Simulated scan of single mutants.
Amino acid sequence: MNKPFDMELFLAGVLTGPYATRQRHLRQAKAIHAAIAERWHQETPWAWHRKHVIWFLEERLGQRKEPTRYYYLLTVRLLVRRLEKSWVFKL
Rank of each mutant, 00 (worst) to 15 (best):
residue 1 M to T: 14
residue 2 N to A: 13
residue 3 K to Y: 14
residue 3 K to R: 11
residue 5 F to L: 00
residue 6 D to N: 10
residue 7 M to Q: 02
residue 13 G to M: 00
residue 14 V to M: 04
residue 15 L to C: 06
residue 18 P to W: 06
residue 18 P to R: 11
residue 19 Y to Q: 12
residue 20 A to Q: 13
residue 21 T to S: 03
residue 24 R to W: 11
residue 25 H to N: 13
residue 25 H to S: 12
residue 26 L to I: 09
residue 27 R to A: 14
residue 27 R to E: 11
residue 28 Q to R: 10
residue 31 A to N: 14
residue 32 I to P: 08
residue 32 I to H: 11
residue 32 I to L: 13
residue 35 A to T: 02
residue 37 A to R: 10
residue 39 R to V: 15
residue 40 W to N: 05
residue 40 W to H: 15
residue 42 Q to R: 08
residue 42 Q to T: 04
residue 42 Q to I: 05
residue 43 E to A: 12
residue 43 E to T: 06
residue 43 E to Y: 07
residue 44 T to K: 06
residue 45 P to Q: 00
residue 45 P to V: 00
residue 46 W to C: 08
residue 46 W to E: 15
residue 46 W to F: 15
residue 49 H to C: 13
residue 50 R to D: 06
residue 50 R to P: 12
residue 50 R to V: 01
residue 51 K to Y: 11
residue 51 K to G: 11
residue 52 H to N: 09
residue 53 V to A: 03
residue 53 V to R: 06
residue 55 W to I: 00
residue 55 W to D: 02
residue 57 L to A: 06
residue 58 E to C: 06
residue 58 E to Q: 06
residue 58 E to F: 04
residue 59 E to W: 13
residue 60 R to F: 06
residue 61 L to G: 10
residue 61 L to R: 13
residue 63 Q to R: 05
residue 63 Q to N: 08
residue 64 R to Y: 08
residue 64 R to P: 05
residue 64 R to D: 10
residue 65 K to L: 08
residue 67 P to F: 02
residue 67 P to G: 02
residue 69 R to P: 03
residue 69 R to V: 01
residue 70 Y to S: 13
residue 70 Y to Q: 14
residue 71 Y to F: 10
residue 71 Y to C: 12
residue 73 L to Q: 09
residue 74 L to Q: 15
residue 74 L to P: 09
residue 75 T to P: 12
residue 76 V to L: 01
residue 78 L to C: 07
residue 79 L to D: 04
residue 80 V to H: 03
residue 81 R to F: 06
residue 81 R to N: 08
residue 83 L to A: 00
residue 83 L to V: 01
residue 84 E to V: 03
residue 84 E to A: 08
residue 84 E to S: 05
residue 86 S to W: 03
residue 86 S to P: 03
residue 88 V to R: 07
residue 90 K to I: 12
residue 91 L to F: 04
